[in-house]
Design a protein around this nucleic acid. Sequence first.
RNA 1: GCCGAGGUGGUGAAAUUGGUAGACACAAGGGACUUAAAAUCCCUCGGAAUUUUAUUCCAUGCGAGUUCGAUUCUCGCCCUCGGUACCA
Length: 800
Amino acid sequence: MNDINLNEIEIKWQKYWQENNCHDINLSFPKNKFYNLSMFSYPSGDKLHIGHWFNYGPADTFARFKKMQGYKVFQPQGFDAFGLPAENYAIKHGVHPAVSTKANVKKMKEQLLRIGAMYDWKNEVNTSSPDYYKWTQWLFLKLHEMGLAYQKVSPVNWCPSCATVLANEQVKEGTCDRCHSEVTKRSLKQWFFKITEYADELLSELDKLNWPAKTIHMQRNWIGKSVGAKIIFDIHGFDETIEVFTTRSDTIYGATYMVLAPEHELVDIIVTDDYKGDIRKYKLSTKKMSEIDRSSADREKTGTFTGAYAVNPFTNEKVQIWISDYVLASYGTGAIMAVPSGDERDFQFAQKYNLPIIEVVSPDGKPHGADQCFSDYGISLNSGEYSGQPSQEVITSINMELERREIGGAKVQFKLHDWLISRQRYWGAPIPVIHCDDCGAVPVSFDDLPILLPEDIKLSETYGEDLSPLATNDEFINAPCPKCGKPAQRDADTMDTFVCSSWYYLRYPNAGYEGGPFDNNKMDWLPVDQYIGGAEHATMHLLYARFVTKVLRDAGYLSFGEPFTNLFHQGTITRDGAKMSKSKGNTVSPDEYVDKHGADIFRTYLMFMGPYEDGGDWTDTGIVGIERFYYKGLKLIRKQVDGELNQKDQYIIHYTIKSVTHDLENKKFNTAISRLMEYANHFISYETISQEVKNTFVLLLAPFMPHIAEEMWQIIGNEPSVFNTDWPVHVEAMIKVSTCKIALQVNGKLRGTIEVDAGISNDDLLTESRNIDNIKKYLDGKTIVKEIVVPKRLVNFVVR
RNA sequence: GCCGAGGUGGUGAAAUUGGUAGACACAAGGGACUUAAAAUCCCUCGGAAUUUUAUUCCAUGCGAGUUCGAUUCUCGCCCUCGGUACCA
C-alpha cells in the first residue's frame, strides 16, 4: 500500500511547479486578482516552528482553493530580518548580525520550501537588504516632508535589558513586549511619527473592515477616543493657568480641588515654601516606583498639597492644588479638576485627605448626601443656573459658556500617542538625518539613499551607556551637513522594525523595483484581499500598517486607505497550555513530522485538529488518522473504473462539493476534511467506482494535500497540474432528497423516527406519525393540545 | 477591577444558529488475518436501568426562566483563556 514515498513526490512536484512556472502570475494584469498574504517571518535564530506552519499551511490551502476557483492568486513570502532578537542572537553567538541573519534566513527558507506552498519567490522581500531599507528610509523622509515625523524630548519607555526605548504599543502591562523586563521612564530626545493625526480616521474606518471583531475592538480601545471639554483654571496669585481635560464638564460646580501629575511642569513653579519638602519627597518616591506598581488601580491613593490654590471659574471658590500619582502625566494635560461626588477615584482621595465634597448630580436632581459618589448621568443640583437640567444638556451649555468666556470648550482626547520610532540599537534601518550645530536636524537628500548600515561595529560594548552602537563608528557618524556643508553628525539611532513591516505588503508585487518603493502600475494588486496572521499584532503592526497606508494615500501614492480588506487570525498552538517559545524550551519542530509523515499529512493534520481560529494544545496523537485517510484515498482512486452512480452516490458527491466549498470559503478546514473523510468512507466499500468519484475526490483534496493530489491526479489518468483544473461546482438538484427521516416527539421528547417521502403533506405526515406504535403508546388516553410540524425535520405532539 | 471569547464523552471536536446532542477522528476494548508483530479489515464505545437486536431515565460548567421543544435565547452564579490597567 505504502508504495509512494511522500518526501520524494514532494520534491517531484515542487520541481514540476517551479519548472512550469505554476506559481508565477503576471502582476501587470490585476484582473480577477487575489492577494493572499501571510505575515512574514522573523529570523531571530529560531527555526521555523509549528506556529509558522499553522499560519502558512492553511493559508496556502486557502490560496490554492482560490486559484482553483479561477482567481489569479499572488502569494508572496519574505523575511522581517532586521530587529533586536536577531541582533541579540548574533551577539550571543559572537557573529555579525548580517552573517547570522543571512544564515538564519537561508535555513528558514529551506524549511519554508518544504511546505510546498504556492509562493512567488521571485518577489521575495528581506527588510535588512539595502534594496529594501533604502525605501524604508524613503518612507521616513516622506513623513518628515509631510510634517509627520518630528523630534521631541519626552519621558519615554526604556527597556534596560534591551537597552533601547520602546513605543507605547510595545509595552505590555508595564513590561517589554519582547523580553518582559520591567520598563522604566527616561527623558530622551527621540523621533516620533504623528500617528495621532490619523486617530479619527483610524477609528472610523474600522467599521469598513472585515476583520475579527476582537481586533477591531482592541484597536478602538487603544485609540481611545473620549469626547469632553478642556477647562482652564486660574492659579491664585500666579499668571500661570492649569488646563484640564474632562468628560464631565457638567460637574464643574463640584470641582473642589485639583490634582497635577507629580511630573507636571507647574508643580515646582507654584509650590509654596512650606510645602517644598513634602513635594520633593513625594516626587522622589513616585520616581522610584515602577510603572507596574504605579499603575495598579487598587493601590491606596496618595498625594501631597502644594500650598497653592486655583479658582473654580464657575463657583469662584479657591480650591486646593494637590499632586498625586493617580493622575497620569501621559494622558490628557496631566492635570485634573477633581469632582469627588462624581468620580470614584476623586471620592476616595477626598475622603482620605478631608477635602470638600459637593453633590452636583443625582438620579432625580434631589440631594442624596455627599457621603457617596454618583458617577452616572442624571440631573444637576447645586450647580447654579444649571441645576435641574439633565447632564448631557448641562455639558453642552457649559461647553458653550467655556467658549464664550474663552476658558476652554469642547475637546476630543485620544489615548493613542505618537509612534516613537527611534531605537538605540544597531540592527535596523539608520534614520536618514544629519544633526548640524547650525541647521539642526536636517534630513538627507532622497538621492543619497540608502544610508548604509556600516558593517564595522563593536556591539555588546556599547549597550547600557545611553549610546547607540552607531555612535561609536566615526566613519559613519561624521558627515557634512546637507544644508550648509559644515561638519555634522548622523543620527545614531535606527528605526523600529515595525517601520520596516509597516509597508512590506506594498513592496511584494514589485520587490525588485528600483524606481521607488513601489511601482504605481502594480498598486492595483492592492489592497491585500486576505491577510492571515497572529492576533498579537492587533495594536502594533496592524495599526502601524493602516497608518502608513493612509499617509501614502494622502501623499498621492495610493488610491486606497486600508491595506488589509479581510483579516483572519489563526489560533495559537500551545504546549501543555503554555505559549511555545525558545526561552521556555517548549517549541516543537515541524521537521521531524515532515520527514516522517510528509508535508501534506502534517499540514492537513494541523487543519483537522480543530477550528482554525482556536489553535490548541499540541499533541501528535491524531496524525495517524490523517495518514489512514490518505491510504484510504489512495485505495479509492486505485479502484477499477466502472460503477454507476445511484441517487445516493450523486447526493454524496454534490453534498460534499457544497460543504467543502462552503467550509473552505469560511476557513473551516476541520469540518471540510471531515466531509472528505465521509466521502471516502462511503465509496471505499464499492468494488468499482466511476471516474467522476475519483476526479471529484482529488480535486476537493488538492488544496489540503497539494503534492499528493498532483500524484493522484496523474494516477487516475489526468494531465498535471490539478491546480489548473476548475474547482467543482455542485448541482443543487442532486442534493434534493426523495425521502427524509423525521424525528417524532411527544411533549418534546424523542419517541421514534419515520422515513417518509420528501414531498409528503403535513396532514399525511401527522396521520402516519400517529400510527407508529411507540407514538400511539404515548397518545393513548391523552388529549392532543397541539401538533407541530417542522417540514423535513420533525413532528411534535403536545398532549395533556 | 473593567472589556471580550469560551466551558459538550477518556481526548480533539461536530451540530444546517431554536428542531433526533456527540458527525469526523484519536485513544480504549473485542474479533479476523498472521508462526508472531506491524499494517489492514470488522464490531463496541457518554452514563445508568430494564424485559439488553429494544425501551426508559439522566446528560452540553452550576442554578433558575422563556418555549411544544434550549448546546443554541434571557437572568444569576462558578471556573478557563485572551485584552487592558487609576485614560479624568
